[in-house]
Simulated assay, not measured.
Amino acid sequence: MNKLNDINPNNSNLDIPDVGRRNMMKMTGATVVAVGVGALTSGSASAHSQVALSNEWDKTFAKSDNVDHKKVTFKNRYGITLAADLYQPKNANGKLSGLVLSGPFGAVKEQSSGLYAQTMAERGFVTLAFDPSFTGESSGEPRNVASPDINTEDFSAAVDFLGLQANVDRERIGAIGICGWGGMVLNATAIDKRIKAVAASTMYDMTRLYSKGYNDSVTLEQRTQGLEQLGQQRWKDAENGAPAYGPVSLELQGGEPQFVVEYAAYYKSPERGFHPRAINSNASWTLTTPLSFMNMPILTYIAEISPRPMLLVHGEKAHSRYFSETAYAAAAEPKELMIIPGATHTDLYDQVDIIPFDKLEEFFKANLA
């Protein structure tokens, strides 16, 4: 494989220049396939619209007998209706601590965030795992678009909802973000002082990735080229009256980097994380999704999380480990970085023997007391 087009052959109509495999990882987020956005194309891919909510169990993990579950909806500050799963420990009394959760980037609440939410509910918390705006069962048009502003607001809207529940102490609400929503939850916590403690698992800073590429390797020339391509895509979308989508995410052709193979092993496998509403399982983002991420760095004010505690969890073998390490360096005390020996990025999505739930329970019980 010596061209980006070799990964997704449908993208040839955008005249992306030939790049070697090493240079592929230096491209801007506009052309990164590894996080499920697909290669640039003017073709159309499945974009799921809103569906009716039900209490049918449609998760990628088994239902716990120790937790009560129901689907709920609430609106964010922009009037977008978010769909969520509310998990509550059975037979609990009094007001409890609460946690809001979302992620990974391109996932739905029936995957990792729901697993984390149900597990933390088993450990005594009222938890709310939500689909971000424009994705999953949440509303918003067009479908399958992300925004560093709106998705940060989604976390605060979840806090609004959870804090209105009769069995939740609104002074004891924390938050967990996974993968790309790990960066979003840190951004939300910096501005929303109602969040008393925050944890980010296998965190991606999507604004850094889209604007600078992996390991900050994108040159100014490459960044400019990516923005020029996105501008041309806007003309096409305007002419068509609708956004274009990439090919279905993570349809491997062979020769992809190992961490892309690991993403596919999670999102495409019915035995692990496949879900028909997940963008990374069954659809793709709009091609212009990277635009707002490329000049809005979400971790600018990470030091302002302090004096509230922050916990970052990352795998030792994760390609994304540097995101948590640099975020930790920029944050103020109290802070903690927990590196899981031998773990990859996606191990922290669903491997319950690797995800440090004991540590998460300890952290939130100590800091939401």
Rank of each mutant, 00 (worst) to 15 (best):
I302V: 15
A45F: 06
A264Y: 00
A158R: 10
A175M: 10
N144D: 14
Y214N: 07
M206K: 02
Q229Y: 11
E262Q: 12
E336N: 15
L337V: 02
S324N: 10
P89C: 02
I279T: 11
V35C: 13
G106P: 13
S49Q: 12
G273V: 02
E56V: 07
M310D: 03
T207F: 08
A329E: 15
E141W: 08
K75G: 11
K59T: 04
F357K: 04
Y116T: 04
G103R: 04
V108P: 07
L348Y: 08
H319I: 04
A303W: 01
E221P: 02
V159T: 10
L230V: 01
L128H: 11
E271Y: 05
S281H: 08
L128N: 10
V198K: 07
K109H: 07
P270D: 05
P290D: 01
S42L: 15
A157L: 06
K95H: 03
E361F: 04
E251D: 12
Y87W: 09
A83Q: 08
V51M: 14
A343H: 08
V100Y: 10
A30N: 07
N66P: 05
Q50D: 09
T202A: 15
Q88L: 02
A45E: 08
P132W: 00
I305K: 13
M203K: 03
G183V: 01
L164W: 11
S54D: 12
G20R: 00
Q233D: 09
T219W: 12
E304D: 15
P257T: 01
S324F: 06
G79N: 13
N11W: 12
V19I: 06
S281D: 11
V67I: 12
P132G: 00
T81V: 11
S249Y: 02
R272N: 08
N13V: 04
L220W: 07
